[in-house]
Design a protein around this nucleic acid. Structure first.
Lengths: 206, 206
DNA sequence: CGTCGGGTTGAAGATTGTCAATCGTAGTGG
DNA sequence: CCACTACGATTGACAATCTTCAACCCGACG
């Protein structure tokens, strides 16, 4: 990416990641920390659409289209790198591989949102939560070598609930079940998986 | 599109629309009839991801990516036009506008799947069904002039259920409610909207 | 020491699913 | 023309799932 205009900035945990007026077309990449895309509904509830991990493009589905139809919020403190939208678009046309990589990311994002819809529509609470964790630990494992099935997971139960369409109290009950059955524990920002096979059985769609 | 390799074929109502071996990269466009994209789950249930109307690209999210992660099935008898994948890709690079149009379609598809996730995760049955119909009548109205708020809607209640994550029985109850409250009726493949304002109030996310 | 956010738990209620019976309509074969 | 069947829609009774409301605990932090 050398030669491209690029800057960094930081957003504190819990704050929205704005896409300021003139820079709608810019591309933001998450460098450290966690964030999430979500849709805010009129009745006050929100649907978390995807958790963003370091390396993810924050507004992946919108690199070419103009209007952003979702919001993004920092889950932990995050560091973000901004690339000029025009630079990126020029690079795409110049370098085949940049374009391919962007499209791959776009396709992955599309697949994920379809899986999410299927999970929300068809699975009961337990399996929805298993599906969420399964997707997350796979993405985490793809980024760093894991030890003892312990994964960083800086989510409150409210975030889990907003992601799978359940109330925090019910999330608490399901997590208690998982604990009792020795499937996993989520404590203090760390997810420990004790029965991966069971988690996969619950969380897999096919 | 003149000069591109192109063929037509037909699929009967209820049959799957296959993407045969060698032509995974081809682009299929729906010319007449209705179809739907869906994900088949291991337990036998399925989530309908999007209904396809004439003019829609059948595998829109997958023009560039190789593996198709969803299935497509004909809802009515459909006519389909096939374009060679290589031809399309060449056109994209040659003609800026073709690329733009494809990306617009892709972005629209992404927005729709996010809205679907939000509806499935956050809305109760009544509002989920309202949301489905609202999205459909807007797309139908954009394609042809409508009279008296009557829209062709060749869905069985089972399709509605698979699209919004409810059992056909409960869909029947909700539709009965809508009938009683004079909001809409769905009879014999025709949706008649009698209280559009109410439908919008129920089915809008924001 | 008080407060506050997050998690846990119980009890009650709302929503949605399951099971089963019924009805109408269209098709099918005698 | 008449069973016979198959499918979709409807309805009732009941059960399972999930939400709501409330109380309580606990650690962090002023």
């Amino acid at each position: 990416m050398k030669g491209a205009r690029q800057e960094f900035f930081t957003v504190k945990a819990g704050y929205q990641i704005e896409c300021p007026p003139q820079s709608d077309q810019d591309v933001l990449v998450l460098c450290s920390g966690w964030a999430f895309r979500y849709l805010q509904l009129a009745d006050g509830s929100r649907q978390i659409l995807r958790f963003l991990l370091p390396g993810d493009i924050i507004s992946a589905p919108m690199i070419f289209s103009e209007d952003l139809n979702f919001s993004v919020r920092a889950l932990t403190e995050v560091q973000i790198s901004r690339f000029g939208g025009d630079d990126i678009r020029k690079k795409c046309l110049a370098d085949e591989r940049v374009m391919i990589e962007l499209l791959r990311s776009l396709a992955e994002s599309g697949r994920a949102s379809y899986e999410l819809a299927a999970a929300l529509g068809q699975l009961p609470a337990e399996r929805r939560i298993a599906h969420l964790f399964l997707g997350l630990i796979r993405r985490i494992a793809a980024r760093s070598i894991m030890l003892h099935q312990r994964y960083p997971m800086p989510l409150r139960q409210r975030h889990v609930g907003d992601a799978v369409g359940l109330t925090p109290v019910h999330v608490s009950r399901v997590l208690a079940l998982f604990r009792d059955r020795q499937v996993l524990t989520l404590v203090d920002g760390v997810l420990e998986v004790t029965a991966l096979a069971e988690l996969e059985r619950l969380g897999s769609l096919r």
